[in-house]
């Protein structure tokens, strides 16, 4: 499909912390403003330990399901919802965003937020999605969710908190590993995570 071979990714490394974060990076909306919710969770490694050096990005439609294409994410004016945010985890592996519940982008569609995950030790960014838990019919009809077995499907659906917020954890590895997505349709072998599995030194 594509004519040019893509530039490979590399790990974000340990030292992004003075470069990628910016003022109000995780506040798509001012905290406490009408309609704002907290999206939060913990990023875990394959041993179940929280990862202190991961950074996430979210990208989502507004509460009406409208995809906005507005500038101003890096220098937020306090009014404009741009739909994009960036959040570093703290030492306990917890990230938080202040955002809105995304609306469905078409009537009856399941509402979700697109997520990119970066971490020290993670060789390339991972894509995933976090779905709102409420509309069960929409979730049942969602093309991606319905292509997953029920155990794995759960990893993409957030929990609704008592205060109206969302909690959603990310597990990079293990039995309850989060479903990560491969969007490439250009024949690249990005899916070859297990290409060398048999040869893996026995350390994991």
């Amino acid at each position: 499909m594509s004519k040019l071979a893509p530039t490979p990714g590399q790990t974000v490394g340990p030292f992004y912390g003075y470069a990628l974060p910016f003022n109000k990076d995780n506040e798509l909306l001012a905290p406490g403003s009408p309609g704002s919710i907290r999206l939060q969770g913990t990023v875990y490694d394959g041993a179940g330990n929280a990862i202190p050096d991961a950074i996430l990005e979210i990208w989502q439609p507004d509460s009406e399901g409208k995809i906005v294409e507005r500038t101003g994410s890096l220098v937020r004016d306090g009014y404009t919802f741009t739909g994009w945010g960036r959040g570093s985890v703290g030492n306990s592996g917890v990230y938080t965003f202040t955002t809105v519940n995304p609306g469905p982008t078409a009537p009856g569609a399941a509402a979700f937020i697109s997520v990119a995950v970066f971490a020290r030790g993670l060789m390339n960014r991972l894509f995933t999605r976090v779905y709102l838990p409420e509309n069960e019919e929409a979730l049942a009809n969602d093309p991606l969710l319905s292509s997953l077995d029920p155990e794995r499907r759960k990893t993409l659906i957030a929990r609704r908190d008592a205060d109206g917020g969302l909690t959603w954890d990310i597990r990079l590895q293990g039995g309850d590993e989060t479903v990560f997505l491969d969007f490439q349709q250009d024949g690249s072998l990005e899916t070859s995570v297990n290409a060398d599995h048999s040869a893996r030194v026995n350390q994991a």
């Binding site: 071979a5 893509p6 490979p8 990714g9 590399q10 790990t11 490694d45 394959g46 041993a47 330990n49 990862i51 971490a119 020290r120 030790g121 993670l122 060789m123 390339n124 991972l126 991606l144 292509s147 997953l148 794995r152 990079l172 590895q173 293990g174 590993e177 989060t178 479903v179 990560f180 997505l181 491969d182 690249s188 072998l189 990005e190 899916t191 070859s192 995570v193 297990n194 290409a195 060398d196 599995h197 893996r200 030194v201 350390q203 994991a204």
Partner: peptide, 23 residues
């Protein structure tokens, strides 16, 4: 065309790569 997610010589990747194929 991309790095191996599972590349044990980079020790920090050992517990931080998905073991299931990307979906």
């Amino acid at each position: 065309t991309m790095p191996r997610l599972d590349y044990s010589p980079y020790r920090s990747s050992i517990l931080r790569h998905p073991t299931k194929s990307l979906h």
